[in-house]
Computed example of a mutant assay.
Amino acid sequence: MVLSEIIKLQHVHKSFGAHIVLNNVSFQVNAGEIVGLIGPSGAGKSTIIKIILGMEQADQGVATVFNTQMPNRKLLNNIGYMAQSDALYTSLTARENLAFFAQMNNLTQNQTAEIDRVASVVDLTSDLNTRVQDFSGGMKRRLSLAIALLGQPDLLVLDEPTVGIDPALRQKIWQELARLRDNGQAILVTTHVMEEAELTDRVALLLGGDLIANDTPHALEAAYQVTSIEQVFLKAEEQQS
């Protein structure tokens, strides 16, 4: 089956001053797959996300989402985005935050049911009426993820979504991501948790602004003659140094 390309980067280059952040990066995320974007801090992962969302512009190359160059406000309703830092209204309750973002995304039908659904996924049902200012850091991450999941958007872009989340809930979240993937949604996720990278359909490994690997976890493990993505990561770093 030919999968439609939801995200497509072609020969993308980005520098900040003399520092090259992305060097001729090309890859895609297709409908119905989860792509894990991994690499050390400063490798360029967040810059890729910002270019995809239209928050930064590439110096060279082309980046498209739904065959359209970003920024494009009309497309934002089709994208669920979770940033590394939580952008929440702390004086509001969790439910009020979810209702606000649902309205922003023009999600008017069955809003209450959808809020209850995403709250259940991230285990916040009993905390919906609590003000976010009283949330722990982990609870804020879970609420940010719930906001990204609202309306089951065609594309999910999740930047370190499970930081501060316990293993049992992390497993539940990945089960939900797999369900969304099986329903045809495209998911791009960055993670430092190598066990999570094993759960993706394809791993894109960034080192020093270069995309040095882009394949299934099993294929990468075979190519590097190791038994885990963590070992792939360590061996790739060693070879690049």
Rank of each mutant, 00 (worst) to 15 (best):
M1G: 15
M1C: 12
S4A: 14
E5V: 15
E5H: 15
I6H: 12
I7L: 15
H11D: 13
V12K: 03
H13S: 04
K14E: 04
G17V: 01
A18L: 14
A18E: 15
H19D: 09
V25P: 03
S26T: 08
F27Q: 03
N30T: 11
G32Q: 08
E33P: 11
V35D: 01
L37Q: 05
G39I: 06
S41C: 09
G44F: 01
K45P: 03
S46Q: 03
T47K: 09
I51E: 05
Q60D: 11
V62H: 14
A63Y: 07
V65P: 04
Q69S: 15
M70A: 13
M70C: 09
N72I: 11
L76P: 05
N77W: 10
N77K: 11
N78L: 12
N78E: 13
Y81E: 00
Q84F: 13
D86Q: 06
A87Q: 05
L88Q: 01
L88S: 03
L88M: 08
L88C: 12
L88G: 04
Y89P: 06
T90W: 02
T90F: 11
T90N: 11
L92W: 06
N97F: 02
L98W: 02
F100R: 05
F101A: 06
Q103T: 14
N105K: 15
L107T: 03
L107D: 04
N110A: 12
T112F: 07
I115D: 01
A119W: 00
D127K: 15
N129G: 14
R131E: 02
V132W: 00
V132R: 06
F135P: 07
G137K: 02
G138L: 04
M139I: 06
K140P: 09
R141F: 06
L143D: 02
S144A: 14
S144T: 04
L149E: 06
G151W: 11
D154M: 10
V157S: 07
V157I: 15
D159Q: 06
E160V: 07
E160Y: 13
T162I: 05
T162D: 00
D166T: 07
P167F: 03
P167C: 09
A168I: 14
Q171F: 11
W174C: 01
W174D: 00
W174L: 00
Q175L: 10
Q175Y: 13
E176F: 04
E176K: 13
E176R: 09
E176L: 06
L177E: 11
A178N: 15
A178L: 13
D182W: 12
D182P: 08
G184Y: 13
V189P: 01
H192V: 06
H192N: 12
E195N: 05
E196G: 09
A197R: 10
A197F: 07
E198Q: 14
L199I: 07
D201T: 02
R202N: 02
R202I: 05
R202T: 10
V203Y: 08
V203F: 08
A204D: 03
L205S: 00
L205Y: 02
L206M: 01
L206D: 03
L207A: 02
L207K: 03
D210V: 04
I212L: 07
A213I: 05
D215E: 13
A219Y: 02
A222M: 01
A223T: 13
A223K: 11
Y224K: 02
Q225P: 06
Q225Y: 07
Q225R: 14
T227L: 09
E230G: 12
V232W: 00
V232M: 05
K235S: 12
A236Y: 08
E237T: 14
E237G: 06
E237V: 14
E238N: 10
Q240A: 09
S241G: 12
